[in-house]
Structures are given as C-alpha cells and as structure tokens.
Amino acid sequence: MSAREAILLKIFEVTGSSNFGSAPDFSIKLPQPDYEFDIQSNKIESNKTDRFVAMLAQVHGTCEMLENLGDVPDSVTNYLTKVGAELRAVIATDEKLSQLDWRDMAVESRAAQKFDRTSITVAFAGIAETGTIAMVSSAQSPITLNFLPEINIVVLLESRLVATMEQFWPKIEAQPRAINFITGPSKTADIEQTLVYGAHGPRHFHVIIVKNQR
C-alpha cells in the first residue's frame, strides 16, 4: 500500500468515505470585518484610499499620490534622489511602465538579479483594509522584482484599490503561478525584539497611487 493510500484509509476510518469525491457542503459564513474605520461603505469611495494610506504608513511603507500615470517617472526620480539612491531601476515587463518617458533614469525591463538596487512594478490590486499590495505573477510581472532589490516602488492605479480581501479574490480569473501580498518593507525582530527593516527583502517600500491611467 502506498503512503497515500495508507493515509487516506486512516482518515476514512474516522471520517467515513461515503461522501468522498463529492464536495462537502461548506456553508460557514465568513464574518464581515468590523473596524472603527468604515471601509465597507461604498458611499465614501475616498475612505478606501485613506485607509490604505494610513495602514501602509503603520507598517513603515511610504506613499505618494499622483494625478496621471505620466507623472510617475518624475516622481520616481524625486523619490530616489531623496533616499539617496542611484537613478537606475529594473522595471516590470509591463507596458504601463515601459511606455513611460524615463529619460532621467536608466531603466531595464526584466526579472531581478542579485545586486539590483531598485525595482518598479505595477500592482495588480491594493487592499485598503490592511494597506496591502497584491502582486500577481505573469510574464509582465516577474516576482523576483518584489523581493530582491532594496527599494521596491509599486505603481497602484487607484481604480485597482479594493476594500477587503474578500473583494480582492473575485478579481483573479485564472489562478496565476503566484500571488504576493505585500504589506510594507521586509522586516525582522529576531534580534532582541528590535524591529529592523530590510531583512532579506526590500528595505524601502514605496507606493505611488495614480488616479488616471494616462
């Protein structure tokens, strides 16, 4: 008997195998999260952005709001200058980024490599509830960009912001290879409970929220 059969047999000894194969009735209802901050209400659309920004700040992420996608390169240049980084970045292989005018910076479209300092990606969605960025892997969105560089800049279209995790799931049509939820820069408290950022992943996590896709 294979290990698989042995394990399943033991399980069926307890649970019975009669309904095996047909989906059990899973009807336990997930509670709606109840926060002081009202993110459920659709009336106040701006609540979502406020909450997102506030939650991101709580986890040491930074944020900037732009009117147009076209403003992104300038904003990135300013940001990198501010944190004292070189004006060079790997950008996601996404048209939204590659079509932009990067004349002030050296950019390359590819997956990340060991010593890349800065990456720029496009968020699949943002989740306001927790200040989380959702990245979905694809040919246009290599996942190493989220983890290897020291500075990770994410462009989030405001229209891609959802209130909760539950509103996020339906946006996924076919399961991608990987979904990365990112909530702030990498950190550790393994040394005497002192919070240190940039454990293995990015030290700086900067989100640029863009109102219009122009």
Binding site: T93, S137, N180, I182
Partner: peptide
C-alpha cells in the same frame, strides 16, 4: 502571532514556472 494586522509577505504558490514567466 506577532500582533500584526497583516504579516509583510503572504504568498500563494500555485505550481512551477509557467511558459512565459521570467522567474520561478
């Protein structure tokens, strides 16, 4: 676990690298 509203990285892995993927 750590008193975090959400941990920094939550990743769902669904199999190996796909045809057009650049990494994985």
């Amino acid at each position: 676990a750590t008193g975090q509203i959400m941990s920094v990285y939550t990743t769902l892995f669904n199999g190996p690298k796909r045809k057009d993927d650049l990494d994985g």
